Each structure stands twice: as C-alpha cells, then as structure tokens.
Simulated assay, not measured.
Amino acid sequence: MLLSVLVLVSGCTVYQSIGKSVGSFLHPVAGHDFVHIGNDQWNQGNALIYFYRTHSQWAADEIEAPSVYIDDTHYFNIRNDSFTWLEVSPGERHIAMRRPLLGLEGLNSFSLSLIADATLEVESGRIYYLRYNELSEPEQAHPDLDPEHPLAQGDLQLVSRAYAMRATELVSTRFLNSDLLAPNHAATSIVETTEDVNYERRMVLLEEERELEIERLKEAGKYHAPSWFWPFGGGPTVPLESDRKIRELEREYAALEDERRQKEREESSGGWWIF
C-alpha cells in the first residue's frame, strides 16, 4: 500500500520484488535438468538469452535471491543452481540485477545493491548465455566481447556457448520454475515489450536529432521565427530530414501494431464453432 501511494504521489520508479525474492535456503530450485528449448519454441527472427547461476554454498544459503531486469522491467529472481530464458527482439537490451532487502531494491536511480548494469546488443537468430556467480568468474572471457564491457567482468558475465556447455556450468543447473513461493515471468517471449522499447528509444533519439537540425537551420538562415503577435507561426523553410525519419518510424510501428492485431484475431479464431 505504501509503495502504491509513493508511486502515485511522487511518480517515482520503485524497484521491488516483494513476494518473488525468496532464496534457495528457503526454497531450493526443483525444476527439470537443463535442456535447450526447441527451435520451434522461438522465432529465429528474434534473439534468445539464457540466464544461469551455478551452484555455490553462498547461493544455497541465500535468504533472498537477486532480481533480473530487462529494459527496466523485472522478470525473475535467480536462485542457486538454476537457469531460465527469455526471447527478445533484436537491438540493444538493458540488463540489470539488484539485490533486494525484504523485497525492496531501489528508488529511481538509487539501488540498495546494484549487482549488474549493462547493455547487450543482440542480433536476430543468435543465442546468448549470461552466467551469474558472485564467488567465481568464468575461466574464459567471451571471445567477441571487449574486455572493458560490463558483461566481461563482475558477477554477471556473457559467456560463449562452448563455455556454458561445460559440465559444471549451465548444463548442471535446473529450470527455475514459477510457483506460489517464487513466481516469475521468465521462460517466455517478451518480444512485443522489447519492440515497444526499441520504438520509444528511436523516437527519443529522432526528437533530439530534430532539435539539432532546427538549430543548424537557424544558423543557416533557413528558419523563420514566429511573430510576436502570432506565436503559432514560423518554422523551417525547408523540409526536415528528421521529420521524414519520424514519419517513417511511425508508419513502421503502425504496421507492427496491425500485424499484432491480425495475429490476435487469428489466434482467437483458431477453434471452430458447431453452429
């Protein structure tokens, strides 16, 4: 109740995983042994990210497990000796991990314990493996990752498929089930959500580009300032390239929404009606 009031009154972003953060000491993972999901379970036009946490006594004795966020949305808390996955759209994905205290994790830019904060550029058709262990780093760095990249150091690191397939790595973990004691929203596609994030990010960049373009036109004398008696007049004397890009982006997103609605209609009419 207090959190809801705080968000409504102040507009703050509250990071929390209350009711989802139980650790392995209280609730050990009991899912099936690791196995890759089938190719028919995800669209190769997107990307697939596996998250896993290898066994350690520290993690096994944990009362609360750390949270995992993709693009500022919480999806799961990763317990000892577990794995899960998410299907995402191609592009830049922001990945963060926070350690909770009684489920509370942070407020706006403040975090009680920010374990990881990184961006990962993912490509269509590719599979990525993110390894979390607070006691030991992987013995091999990812060959395609800059050594200075946040995911090439620290507790959460990107590893290669070959490394993840080692006997003591991903293949030794168990599936992170979602249940009443530790519900989660992983092992699913979040493509629509990440597509929306891509659109919003591109729109912000284009709006910034538009402001810069207008400044350049003003300097070049190709912009009429509004009259003092009619503040709604004025503007550039030539078409803006940024406006063209914005219209194109809006058309692409409108087409994407139409495609989603069509898919929903097809799925909702998948059965047959006896009458």
Rank of each mutant, 00 (worst) to 15 (best):
Thr237Cys: 00
Thr237Asp: 15
Thr237Lys: 03
Thr237Glu: 15
Val238Tyr: 00
Pro239Lys: 05
Glu241Trp: 09
Ser242Trp: 02
Ser242Asn: 01
Ser242Ile: 00
Asp243Arg: 02
Arg244Ser: 07
Arg244Val: 09
Lys245Glu: 10
Lys245His: 09
Lys245Met: 09
Ile246Pro: 00
Arg247Trp: 08
Arg247Gln: 06
Glu248Ala: 05
Glu248Phe: 06
Leu249Lys: 00
Leu249Tyr: 13
Leu249Glu: 06
Leu249Gln: 02
Leu249Ser: 01
Glu250Asp: 08
Arg251Lys: 09
Arg251Ala: 15
Arg251Phe: 10
Glu252Val: 07
Glu252His: 11
Glu252Met: 12
Tyr253Met: 04
Tyr253Asn: 05
Ala254Lys: 11
Ala254Met: 06
Ala254Arg: 13
Ala255Tyr: 03
Ala255Trp: 02
Ala255Asn: 08
Ala255Ser: 13
Ala255Ile: 03
Leu256Ile: 07
Leu256Glu: 12
Glu257Asp: 13
Glu257Gly: 06
Glu257Tyr: 10
Glu257Arg: 09
Asp258Ala: 02
Asp258Tyr: 02
Asp258Trp: 01
Asp258Leu: 01
Glu259Ile: 03
Arg260His: 13
Arg260Trp: 14
Arg260Ser: 09
Arg260Cys: 14
Arg261Met: 15
Arg261Asp: 13
Arg261Phe: 15
Gln262Thr: 14
Gln262Ala: 13
Lys263Met: 11
Lys263Ile: 07
Lys263Tyr: 11
Lys263His: 10
Lys263Gly: 12
Glu264Cys: 02
Glu264His: 07
Arg265Gln: 14
Glu266Asn: 06
Glu267Tyr: 05
Ser269Leu: 15
Ser269Trp: 13
Gly270Arg: 03
Gly271Gln: 09
Gly271Ile: 15
Gly271Phe: 10
